[in-house]
Every structure is written in structure tokens, then in C-alpha cells.
Simulated assay, not measured.
Amino acid sequence: MSAVVQLRLPGERAFDSARLGRLAIASLHAELALAPKPGLVTPFDAGSHDDMDAGTFLRSLFALRHYFTAMAHAGAADAPFARLRAHGLAAETAMLRATGGINTHRGAIFSLGLLVASAARCRRQHGHSVPAAQVCLGVQHWADDFARAPLDAQSPGQRARVQHGVPGVREQAAAGYPLLRELAVPTLRHALSAGLPRDAALCQTLMQLVAHIDDLNLLHRGGIDGLLWAQQQARGFLESGGAFAPGWQVRLHGIGERFVARRLSPGGSADLLACSWFLLQQEAA
């Protein structure tokens, strides 16, 4: 008979790591369940994707269910980036095994994993949850190390980043995720405080991200013309009232049909949306 012994670190509440891990998975599920989303996989359609659907994402989430808890434990222990990276590589292997080699959550494994680790580290230091912006800035604790870690030069996102000379998630992380601190989280917080239901607030935030970021998935699929077109579509939606205006679902569904016709999918924006929801939820957890 064997037993699993869980060590409790000084200043760490025993349940915090598991709770943060569950919040991360729930945030990714909230993004998946959201509809309509232009070009992205939803429970109702595959968007602009031929190789994945909601079932693919659910298999990936099941495979990743222990990863974010492990990242929280590592963050609370102030582990070096080498340990965080080892967890991330193992998670990527598990994801690819579960999906038959399809990349569903590589970006989230990196960004959301770092944010979970940072949230856990901040909780150990302060004895309680901290604001979203502080969690984002806390990622900079590992910045020197992940800036030196090897990159997969053959990944679509990395090829698009080099070809178009735009910053990627590493640069965002090293800067403390300004897109989350200054754009996505404030948009989501405002939409919720203004009374929008969760899904409407998430759609509003997603379109703010599409309108303002150099989404590497859009660049990979559509080049600079595709990115600029997608940004223009998102800005038009927001300028017409966004999710605050009556009939917004119909308008967003129509935008989604045009994204699918062009085979565009803002996967980078979707990852940041899940991160935004996690950051707000961890404040109250």
C-alpha cells in the first residue's frame, strides 16, 4: 500500500495550488464554450479549422488537467524556470498524444502556465490573492531564463514572428503581459461591472484583442493583409457598440462567417482571453 505525501510550504495554503490549477482548466473551457467566435472552434462548429473540433480541445484539456496544478506548486516553491519548462514540455507531449499530434493549447501551456505559477508565488509571498496586474508583472521573475530558452524555429507562430518582425508571447511575458494588464483585463472587468453576462463580456474582450494585437495565428494564416482585415472587422464590431448593442450575436456570427471564408483564426487572441478570465477569477479564489 502506498500513499502520496503532499508537502505544504510555509505560507502556502494547502488547497491553493489545486484551486489555481482547476481555475486554469476552467478558463480554457470557458474560452472553448464561448460562441460565436470568429474563426475559432466552438461547441457548435470547427470555425476555420479542418483538423480539430470541440472534442479535440476537450481531450487536450483532460490531458492537461494536472499540469496547471503542478505549475502552481512549482510557483509556490519559487522553482527555477528550468522546472517550469520541464512541466511545460511534459504537458505539450501529453497534449499531442491526446490530440493525435494536433496543437490545441501550446500557447496556453506557456502563458497560462506562467500566470498560474506567478499567482501561486504571489500568494505564498503575501498570504492572499493579489490583483491581476500584479500576477502579470510577477511573471518577470523568470524573464531572464525563458528569454534564453530554445525556440522551435519550425512552429507556425515562430515562422510568422520572424517573417513579419513582430513580438511574440515571450516578449509579452518578459514585459509583464501589458496586453493583459492594459487592454484585456480592464475590458473584461468593465464589461462585467457594466452588467454584461459572462459570454457577452468575453466576446467583447476577444474582439478588443483581435482589434489591437498582432495575432501570430492570423499572420500565419493570412499574412499581413489577413491580420489587417481581421483587425478592421473587429474594430467595426466594437465601433457599432460591440456586445453592448442589441443584436450583437447576429453581427458577430456574420463576421465569423467571413473569417471562415478567409480561413482566418485568431488563436493568439483566444489564448489571451482565457488568461484574462483566469486572472479575474483568481482574484476572488
Rank of each mutant, 00 (worst) to 15 (best):
G75L: 07
D50P: 04
V5L: 15
S60G: 10
Q140G: 06
A173G: 04
A201R: 07
Q158C: 08
G223E: 11
I25A: 08
L61Y: 03
A63S: 10
D16F: 08
E31W: 01
L32K: 03
G223P: 13
S240K: 13
A184T: 00
I255E: 04
V210S: 00
H164I: 12
Q231D: 09
R106I: 09
L188A: 12
I255Y: 05
M71R: 09
N103K: 08
W229S: 12
G127W: 10
G55N: 07
L188W: 06
Q6H: 15
A149I: 06
A274H: 02
M95T: 04
A191Y: 02
Q231T: 02
Q233L: 07
D145I: 06
V116K: 01
L61H: 03
A91M: 05
H164Q: 14
E171K: 00
A149K: 02
T99F: 08
I224D: 14
Q232E: 15
Q231R: 13
Q249T: 10
L28H: 02
L188S: 10
R97H: 13
V130G: 11
P131D: 12
G256F: 02
Q208W: 03
L114E: 04
L32T: 01
F259M: 07
F62H: 11
H66Y: 12
Q282E: 14
A18P: 01
L40N: 00
R124Y: 14
R13G: 11
P43W: 06
A200P: 06
L188H: 09
P131Q: 09
R22I: 04
R59T: 03
R22T: 10
G226F: 09
A14N: 06
A98Y: 05
V260N: 06
L137D: 11
E171D: 11
P150A: 11
L96R: 13
E31L: 03
A175Q: 08
W277T: 08
Q282V: 14
S129H: 13
S48L: 02
L112P: 04
G241A: 13
D45T: 00
L188N: 10
L238S: 04
A77D: 14
Q134V: 15
D214Y: 01
A86M: 12
W277N: 09
G247V: 12
C275N: 08
F146N: 03
L32I: 08
V4W: 15
R8V: 15
A119M: 12
L58A: 04
P186Q: 09
L179W: 00
T99S: 10
N217Y: 00
A245C: 13
V166E: 11
D51E: 14
S60M: 06
A94I: 09
L202M: 15
F81E: 04
G127H: 11
R65M: 05
L273A: 06
A70E: 12
F146P: 02
R235E: 10
A24T: 09
E92R: 10
Q134S: 15
L219A: 11
A132E: 09
V5Y: 14
A194E: 15
V116P: 03
E31H: 04
L115D: 07
F15C: 07
N217V: 01
S27F: 09
A3S: 15
S276Q: 07
L218F: 08
L20D: 10
P197E: 14
L64T: 03
R170Q: 09
G157R: 02
P178W: 00
G55R: 12
G47Y: 00
R123S: 14
A119P: 14
T187R: 08
L279A: 12
E257I: 00
L179N: 00
H220Y: 12
